[in-house]
Computed example of a mutant assay.
Amino acid sequence: MAADPATTTVAEHRLVRHGSWLICPLLGALLLWLLRLVAAWVSGLPWAPFQGVFELAASVPDPWGTVGAIAIGAIIGLGFAGLMAQERLTVSVAPERLTLTVGRSARHVERAEIGSVFVDGKHFVVLDETGGELARQPSDLDKAALRRAFADHGYPWRDKDPFAARYSLWVEDTPELSLRLNALMSARDRALRKRDGKEAALLRTELAERGILVRDEKKRQYWRATS
Rank of each mutant, 00 (worst) to 15 (best):
G197A: 03
L127Y: 03
A29N: 06
R193W: 12
I72R: 00
Q137D: 14
K194M: 09
P156T: 00
A208P: 00
L179R: 13
I70Y: 14
A74C: 13
P49H: 00
R148K: 13
A225N: 07
R147K: 14
A85T: 13
A81Q: 01
E110W: 05
I212E: 00
A183K: 11
A135G: 15
L127D: 01
L26E: 11
A200W: 00
R104T: 15
A106I: 07
A164D: 10
L141I: 08
D142N: 12
S186T: 11
W21H: 09
R36S: 11
T205E: 00
T174R: 09
T90F: 01
D140A: 13
L78C: 12
V53H: 01
S168M: 06
D196F: 02
T9C: 06
A57R: 06
G131H: 04
A57E: 07
A71E: 01
G68Q: 11
K160D: 07
G19P: 03
A74F: 08
R180K: 01
E12L: 12
D128L: 08
T205V: 01
L184P: 03
A2S: 08
R224P: 05
E110H: 10
E172R: 10
E12S: 12
A187T: 04
T99R: 07
F124R: 06
T99H: 02
I70V: 10
A29S: 07
A149G: 04
L141Y: 13
L98H: 15
G132Q: 05
R14T: 02
L78Q: 14
A144H: 13
L141A: 10
D173E: 00
D173A: 01
A2N: 03
R204D: 01
G52Q: 04
V53M: 04
M1K: 10
P175L: 15
R158S: 06
L34D: 04
R190G: 07
Y222G: 04
V67N: 08
Q137L: 09
S105G: 08
D4Y: 08
P25G: 10
D140W: 14
S227K: 00
Q137E: 14
G82P: 03
H13F: 14
A144F: 06
Y222N: 04
F124Y: 09
D4M: 01
L37E: 10
L26S: 15
E87P: 02
L213P: 15
L35D: 02
T130P: 00
R193I: 10
A48E: 13
D62H: 12
G103T: 15
R193S: 11
V125H: 07
G73M: 09
D120C: 04
E113N: 12
